[in-house]
Simulated assay, not measured.
Amino acid sequence: MRTAYLKDINHIPCPVPYPVKQDEIAKMLSTLSEKLENEVIFQMKLQKQKEFLLSQMFI
């Protein structure tokens, strides 16, 4: 279906977690975001180290 009209989907229940659960979810997502950011930084550092080591091998 390309377009969903309100009249077609208005009857579908959409539960919303309690605020405490929403906070837990938000904290978990923030933690995962920080972890991903740290892993990207670590990967960049490893890439630089690899480039340096390769350049030293072929001097």
Rank of each mutant, 00 (worst) to 15 (best):
K7Y: 06
N38C: 06
M28R: 14
K35V: 05
E37D: 15
I59H: 07
L6I: 13
Q47D: 09
L53E: 13
T31M: 09
K27Q: 11
Q22A: 15
Q56P: 01
I25F: 11
L6P: 00
S30I: 04
V20L: 13
V16K: 15
Q56G: 07
I41L: 12
L32M: 13
P15F: 03
L53K: 09
M57P: 00
E51W: 01
D8W: 01
I9D: 00
M44T: 08
I12Y: 05
E24T: 03
L46S: 07
Q49L: 15
K7R: 12
E51Q: 12
T3V: 15
P15Q: 02
E51H: 03
M57I: 04
L32E: 15
E37C: 06
E34I: 15
E39S: 08
T3K: 12
A4C: 10
N38H: 12
Y5M: 00
M28F: 11
F58L: 09
R2H: 10
I41D: 12
K50T: 10
C14Q: 14
I25W: 08
M44F: 04
R2M: 10
N10C: 10
V40C: 02
L36Q: 11
L53Y: 05
S30E: 15
Q43Y: 10
A26L: 13
K50H: 11
I59Q: 12
L53D: 04
N10P: 00
M28Q: 15
L29G: 01
K21L: 12
M28W: 02
K35T: 14
R2L: 06
T31Y: 07
D23V: 05
Q56K: 14
F58S: 07
Y18C: 13
K21W: 08
L6Q: 01
L53H: 04
M28Y: 11
I25A: 08
N38Y: 03
